[in-house]
Design a protein around this nucleic acid. Structure first.
Lengths: 143, 143
DNA sequence: TATTGTTATACTCTATAACTATA
DNA sequence: TATAGTTATAGAGTATAACAATA
């Protein structure tokens, strides 16, 4: 009974935290006229160097057409480019232009800075615990 | 140095967890042809009974026009209604119709069930710890 | 004048279905 | 035939600016 109440409370605050975390991407992008989705895509690409459309779609849980549109808009703004894979000519790699890379790095830094600001409210012992707990929660999610 | 690596890893997995949590709203809605935003709005309203537009906008971090559109679509589907506040005739309350309430309760149950499924991967000791930690992270966010 | 909401407008985001090109 | 992407279409989500009504 008391268990249930705690469970519900944890659920509620987890949702609030999730919103807060993803809101950071919106905020970081706003100054550069980037949407949350654009920031997320660019961050996803920059930490990987280049990504294939299919993999990026799975990563971001998007239909291929949705992703295609997203990449279109970034390409039109000169922030990303597509290149054909010479070994499998069906496949397309997405990477950032130098302008896109610079913008992505700045935005990525802003996001992680705010995220670290959040994380650093916790003593490092709790940080390690949280890290382990979150890993447990996400384990076997993508088997 | 090692601290930084752990911090970055925690940041990354927090973002992944956030996506996963909010994705639950999408999934729960899909079966009922509801979008993530619609599910979130309905859940926000149902746990409060009725909410004023302004408050709902702050809650969901949305411009008033965006919220107005969102409510429009739910109203058009017969899931929500607006009522004028007789004491302050500028203000509008949003509440769910009986059909909306039923759908919201079902969807809310689905979301919380999946969320509980996630949470229950943790021993209850860790659940209590996580609960405390998340509260710390979110404290003083809305002072 | 300030607050509450809606409307008009212009994008962005998203999915489904149909398509092209390659394997 | 199956896979990787794009295009066409339609609708949903969002913000800015201008507006109406009320306080």
């Amino acid at each position: 009974m008391n268990e249930t109440v705690e469970e519900a409370e944890l659920a509620t605050s987890l949702v609030a935290l999730s919103h807060h975390v993803l809101q950071l991407f919106s905020c970081a992008g706003r100054a550069h006229k980037l949407t949350q989705q654009q920031v997320e895509l660019m961050c996803a690409v920059i930490v990987r160097g280049r990504v294939r459309m299919t993999d990026l779609g799975k990563l971001m849980v998007l239909e291929k057409s949705s992703l295609s549109n997203l990449v279109d808009r970034l390409e039109r703004r000169g922030l990303a480019v597509r290149t054909r894979d010479p070994d499998d000519r069906r496949a397309t790699w997405v990477e950032l232009t130098s302008e896109g890379t610079e913008l992505a790095m700045r935005t990525h830094r802003e996001v992680t800075a705010r995220l670290d600001g959040l994380i650093n409210r916790l003593p490092s012992k709790d940080q390690r615990r949280l890290s382990a707990v979150v890993r447990t929660l996400m384990a076997e999610e993508n088997p």
